[in-house]
Design a protein around this nucleic acid. Structure first.
Lengths: 335, 335
DNA sequence: GTGAAAGCGCTAACAA
DNA sequence: TTGTTAGCGCTTTCAC
């Protein structure tokens, strides 16, 4: 391609990369020739010299993609302008598969790796410490001294509870997932801090079924609450459905808040669920940004960073409908 | 690393790649030295010569990932043993973004591209004809003369209807999505062929809400069916919920079949939904296999290939529970 | 301001 | 059987 503009390859390279010095005229001539010929530099050749592949790997065991996909979208969004592409590697919980994918990425000289998972207190089944490239953990537990990004479960839950209290709810209960999850502990802590007491906490599975069951238990004991803060949207959906079947009105009689803001669940519940969004896309963007900084040798403070959650208001809590709509709209636009 | 084994780099290369000829002893010595040093060849350098990057790109506008993720899992599964990694590029419906991602992948010398989407009768917002690398379309419309993989909507729907008929259902209606979708037309055709008549077909949105609404319409008109074949699982879930609220038993009074076998919906419905699985993972495997064959210069017959769907039996149609369980189990194990 | 030459880490053809 | 040489497509000194 160089000859087309009547210059050497060296000059062409400099012209296209806006480096070196030459007359502006030459530079433009080369660029013109390049576009005309549809010339695009070979990233492998370039990478071989620069020791940069403009490639990063996303390793995840969240095959179902509920958490990883938004994270991936954020990463991609943050990196695509820099010309960085992302390898997605689903490794289930298989150490051997993890090794294979990791090796494949390392061979390809990825500039960095982002590890992601489905819960923040479990590690991927593959050791990512002491790799020749930087690693950032997003929504999964990292190794000693690593850079880790998680959502702020406490803050998100606190907002949910505050919202219910502001709406005038007096007897708020918390129906959540298995007690072994760190996020469950954190959300429960925020719930208790919010209501200023022990409250009522029901632990169970992360399922609609458990939401139903929990409502049955509550109503059987006669301890009917006026608000139920749920550990995730599936539980919340089960709760809302169970309440409707009992003739209890949501939100008139009981307000319900979910967690995750999983559109397919929160949006399809009747009424649509007010829910805590973990802003995973933003978390992904941050992960992308950080891994790139590390790849470029910039210093990044290690440690766990908690990124804020955001309460997305729909119709399951009542309150001012106008505010409801506009806030929901804004939130949607933000992300 | 070569010197460690006391041989030239050329010999080392041949030893590790099992090419060239040398004493078995030398080969083993080199391999031993390689493992000992943890040596791994630089894929960029290798790719530069071989003009193969062992990398392929997956371009999709299915941000939500409902269709793309299983396809991606299949692709990855088919290619990881060959050392091929996959770039995932979500391009929404933005042509500019599509272009950016495409160029980035082309620069990186991907060996091929798989295009995927959320419906089979729409194209991605980016032109993939006349690329310097092979393209395979999976679950999205391809260009003239391309290799395209879709699921066999007709066959899948036919199986669903046959199943209902075998169960003794006489008045089967079809509640489905917007008439403009090719898959809706195809599924409707199979429904009509199956019942041997025009039947009752209700078109609407792909939502739970429409499922509810459709049941209201049917029961209002007094044309109560004994089976409802739904265009997707969300509609089916709406249908099942609406029936329960009317006191109509599923499957005792009415059998319901969904489509997509989207675990999160089909599995959580009460009772769990019998549904048509499009085998997207298998479709992804096939796409991966084909794009690799094309990349290696092997001939692949162009045209649209329809891959079979599979009926996954749960509890929404009644029938033999034992068979139900075992078939459901087998199906789950297969994929 | 521009170009010639070296070299990134590997593989392939050819000598030895 | 092994090693030497050339070169993949680019960037980067360093002469000119």
């Amino acid at each position: 391609m160089a000859s087309r503009a009547g210059v050497s390859v060296a000059t062409a390279s400099k012209a296209l990369n806006d480096t070196g010095r030459m007359t502006e005229d030459t530079r433009q001539r080369v660029k013109a020739a390049a576009t005309e010929l549809g010339f695009r530099p070979n990233a492998m050749a370039r990478g071989l010299i620069q020791k940069r592949s403009f490639t990063i790997g996303l390793l995840t065991n969240d095959t179902y993609g509920r958490f990883t996909l938004p994270v991936m979208a954020g990463i991609s969004e943050a990196l695509v302008d820099q010309g960085v592409s992302v390898f997605l590697c689903g490794i289930e919980d298989d150490p051997a598969l993890g090794r294979v994918h990791l090796d494949a990425m390392l061979d390809k000289q990825v500039d960095g790796i982002i590890a992601s998972g489905k819960r923040i207190d479990r590690r991927l089944p593959v050791d990512l410490s002491n790799l020749p490239v930087p690693v950032v953990y997003a929504f999964t537990e990292g190794h000693e001294g690593s850079v880790t990004l998680v959502s702020d479960d406490f803050q998100g839950s606190a907002e949910a509870v505050e919202h219910l209290i502001a709406l005038g709810c007096k007897r708020i209960v918390h129906v959540t997932g298995p007690e072994t999850f760190a996020s469950v502990k954190e959300r429960t802590k925020a719930y208790r801090a919010g209501i200023g007491g022990d409250g009522v906490v029901l632990y169970g599975a992360w399922s609609e079924h458990w939401g139903h069951e929990a409502v049955a238990q509550l109503w059987q004991q006669g301890e009917t609450p006026d608000a139920i803060f749920c550990g995730n949207d599936q539980i919340a959906r089960g709760v809302v459905d169970a309440l409707r079947e009992r003739g209890v009105k949501v939100p008139a009689d009981v307000s319900v808040v979910g967690f995750d803001n999983w559109e397919i669940v929160a949006g399809q519940t009747r009424p649509p669920l007010t829910s805590v969004d973990m802003n995973l896309k933003a978390l992904g963007r941050e992960a992308g940004r950080l891994v790139l900084e590390l790849a470029e040798g910039k210093p990044v403070e290690p440690g766990v960073r908690k990124l804020p959650c955001q309460l997305v208001i729909r119709e399951s809590c009542g309150g001012n409908a106008a505010v409801t709509e506009s806030r929901g709209g804004v939130v949607a636009a933000v992300d």
